[in-house]
Write a protein that binds this DNA or RNA. Structure first.
Lengths: 194, 194
DNA sequence: CTATTAAACAAACACTTGTTTGGTAAGTCA
DNA sequence: TGACTTACCAAACAAGTGTTTGTTTAATAG
């Protein structure tokens, strides 16, 4: 383990590093981003990164952790004020779509970089992902659905549809995250409350 | 351009090459697979691959082309004998899920390796993808749906949900491709025919 | 039997990768 | 003042990357 201690104001550089790395990982992918790319982005020499982080993998781990914390918070904020289970689902789904597309690069990294790209930490990364998906699962529990509905498959369907948005969504495209979420959720809602 | 000509029986080695590459690309990804990995898999020296293909990128292009041809065929075979639009959708969706998970590595590569990983051919790769997605779109046109339904978003939802299956599906898991397809399509069907 | 071609080998090339090492200027603290 | 620490630079390291080159073997065609 390296610094990560909060003393001094050094964490400003540390933070800049993580942010630059997150930007690059989110847009180019993990493998396609080199330590030299990251160093250049923060105006630093490649070797100097190793004062702050032990390895490229550790850098990703830190980003994943921050990303999950952020998406979890965004998600809960979007949902907490609502009571109706369907409204909660819709708001949560919209938060997911925003996280995958518009939101900070931290959250985007989580859905862009798959755990199997980093064998050393694949277990930890999967755990971080699960942490968020559990929140999503809670949402579904609140819904009253027809007996034919398999909640597990429903979760995977919505998660997959949301996740996939990162490949086609455009901020200035035809639809907003809210509109997309509303459409996706409506199929579930209409078929459950018939 | 290199051989690709069908003379001699040399295309047995050529074919072995493409198959080995497809296997590796499908399981490890494009960037994570080196020409040396591929060479080793077919018991050949790295340089020798360049007798058959001009570059690693060209190798992927060939795989994409073969993969799209295969998934298109599988898809049409699954659908052609059916008349009912809903049955056709369900069969098509099941074919997609099988292509993403169980089927040959050629089809899996298409969904595992994204076009932006190969800038040189990203246009061509996107065109190949679109070629298949157009088939899927045709299926949706046959459905009679409620006025609130946006067909474009519906397509993206189903495509995303199917695509995502590659991350969690297991051949000896709880569900078959058919069961998954049936569940996904049912949400659409129930909400459209209420 | 010879000329040509297909298919591969052996070895390198130029470059990029993540990472390590030794040193150093600036600041902190006793 | 002197010891210690923080944050970095400069330079290299070993390994791996896609690819090229010159050469060789085996088959085929005239």
């Amino acid at each position: 383990m390296k610094p990560q201690r909060s003393n001094s104001r050094s964490n400003s550089r540390n933070r800049a590093l993580v942010e630059a790395a997150a930007d690059l990982f989110a847009s180019q992918g993990f493998k396609a981003t080199s330590m030299r790319d990251i160093a250049r982005a923060v105006d630093m020499l490649p070797g100097s990164i190793y004062y702050h982080f032990d390895s490229k993998d550790d850098l990703l781990l830190a980003i994943y952790e921050a990303g999950v914390a952020q998406i979890t918070q965004t998600f809960e904020e979007a949902v907490e004020s609502l009571d109706d289970p369907w409204a909660r689902l819709e708001a949560g789904m919209a938060a997911l779509i925003r996280a995958v597309t518009e939101e900070s690069s931290f959250t985007r990294v989580i859905f862009k970089v798959t755990p199997d790209e980093v064998p050393k930490y694949s277990g930890e990364l999967i755990a971080f992902r699960d942490q968020f998906e559990a929140k999503f699962e809670e949402l579904l529990e609140g819904l009253s659905l027809q007996p034919w509905v398999n909640r597990q498959l429903l979760r995977l369907m919505l998660l997959g549809a949301g996740n996939h948005a990162q490949l086609w969504f455009s901020p200035d495209g035809d639809y907003s995250a809210d509109e997309i979420s509303e459409q996706f959720c409506r199929f579930v809602k209409e078929s459950a409350t018939r």
